[in-house]
Amino acid sequence: MSTQERLYKVLLGPHISEKATIVADGNGQYVFKVATDATKPEIKQAVESLFDVKVLSVRTLNHKGKVKRTVRGFGKRSDTKKAYVRLAEGQEIDFLNV
């Protein structure tokens, strides 16, 4: 897989929540849902190329899927990964107009 193709698979979508709004307003950080196997450099590259911005830093976290019990035994929801991406001063991403 070429690098370019890989970049399109890294970002899964914006993560919109109260916290995401607060960090966007206060710290210039944008929160994405990303592929569980994505690395920080990959995320940085993907955001820079897709939104045409300068990324200062990327912080990631893994979110383990909940274990759910049903009649047929145990089931597990998929794990997810989130990335907090800090942009250079003065830059922003408008999720509606992309």
Binding site: H15, I16, S17, E18, D25
Partner: peptide, 18 residues
């Protein structure tokens, strides 16, 4: 009511955008 926000806690900026 928006996903990711407690009812009544949606910031005006988000509402305006939406």
């Amino acid at each position: 009511r928006l996903d990711g926000f407690r009812p009544g806690k949606v910031p005006a900026s988000v509402v305006k955008q939406r």
